[in-house]
């Protein structure tokens, strides 16, 4: 069981991060933002940054830090929210999201000064980069872990399976992937687009697989992450977290339309009201 204090902290931060997501997305105005895929992954990202990873916002290049690679780069709002709440970036910087000259682009752009490890957004690539980073740690006998957030839609990409098979071959048990299984990708539900048993695929590729039913429940997510972090089975680990697309905002939950779009004022006000009353 995850420590109650940690669970409370992650829940508290997750709530703040949801609000950050809405604030950034609204501030982006007509440029729009990926709300749904950020909100589904909040507990995973919050769990990593506030409960699992060894990291120091004051020292983003600390050699033995755990690495976080957000391969589903379009969900960057969750990442930027975590960077804000941990103190890698200021609130003022947060509000520059998608602005001219902002370093917080619509997909993460590597910026070690502010804790962004890897450029991502071309789906699948970040995961393979994470595999390479995990291999490097193995070669050097470093103890840190590499955590990689992958989308369920992203698992359509061929490189995911090239990399997954390869990671198992290299026995990268310092690598923990988390699939944010929110069930909705850009053009439809993952079931409609490509109805495959990804658990079986990950297993076939040689990974330790655990399914978390409550992917938006801090306690369940933390428990799974701790289990995988502390396991040295010789296999890479994947947590398939069943989440809700757009979690926390009623009109976004499970919605195809709120995968990515601009947020008009009336929706912003409703979203804020819902979060404040949650």
């Amino acid at each position: 069981m995850a420590n109650k204090k940690t669970v409370d902290l992650v829940e508290e931060k997750a709530a703040l991060m949801r609000r950050d997501v809405i604030e950034m997305g609204y501030a982006a105005g007509g440029r729009g933002a990926h709300f749904g895929p950020a909100l589904s992954s909040i507990e995973i990202v919050a769990g990593l940054f506030f409960g699992i990873m060894n990291h120091d916002p004051k020292n983003p290049t600390m050699a033995d830090r755990d690495r976080f690679v957000q391969s589903k780069g379009h969900a960057c709002l969750a990442y930027y929210a975590a960077l804000t709440e941990t103190g890698y970036i200021t609130r003022e910087q947060m509000y520059t999201f998608k602005g001219d000259n902002s370093f917080l682009a619509g997909h993460p752009t590597r910026n070690m000064k502010y804790g962004i490890e890897v450029t991502s957004g071309s789906l699948g690539n970040g995961f393979a980069v994470a595999c390479g980073m995990a291999k490097a740690a193995k070669i050097k006998s470093d103890d840190h872990k590499v955590y990689c957030l992958v989308g369920d839609g992203e698992c359509n990409e061929g490189i995911i399976w090239e990399a997954a098979m390869n990671a198992a071959k290299y026995e990268l048990d310092n690598l923990i992937a988390i699939v944010d299984r929110n069930g909705v990708q850009l053009a439809g539900t993952t079931k409609d687009i490509m109805d495959v048993d990804i658990e079986a695929l990950w297993r076939a590729a040689g990974w330790d697989v655990v399914v978390v039913e409550g992917g938006n429940d801090a306690s369940s997510v933390l428990e799974a992450l701790q289990g995988m972090r502390d396991s040295s089975s010789g296999k890479p680990h994947v947590i398939i977290a069943n989440t809700t697309k757009g979690k926390g905002i009623s009109f976004m939950e499970g919605s195809l339309g709120w995968h990515a779009r601009p947020m008009p004022q009336e929706f912003y006000e409703q979203a804020v009201a819902e979060l404040e009353n949650a």
Binding site: C131, I139, A163, K169
Partner: peptide
């Protein structure tokens, strides 16, 4: 042998995997 990594016939992964190694000093 310790510095040689066969990446199978999987070039996409080879590129990004190499990036990961390069990120960590190789």
């Amino acid at each position: 042998p310790d510095r040689f990594f066969p990446m199978k016939m999987a070039e996409q992964n080879m590129m990004s995997f190499a990036a990961g190694l390069a990120r960590e000093g190789y």
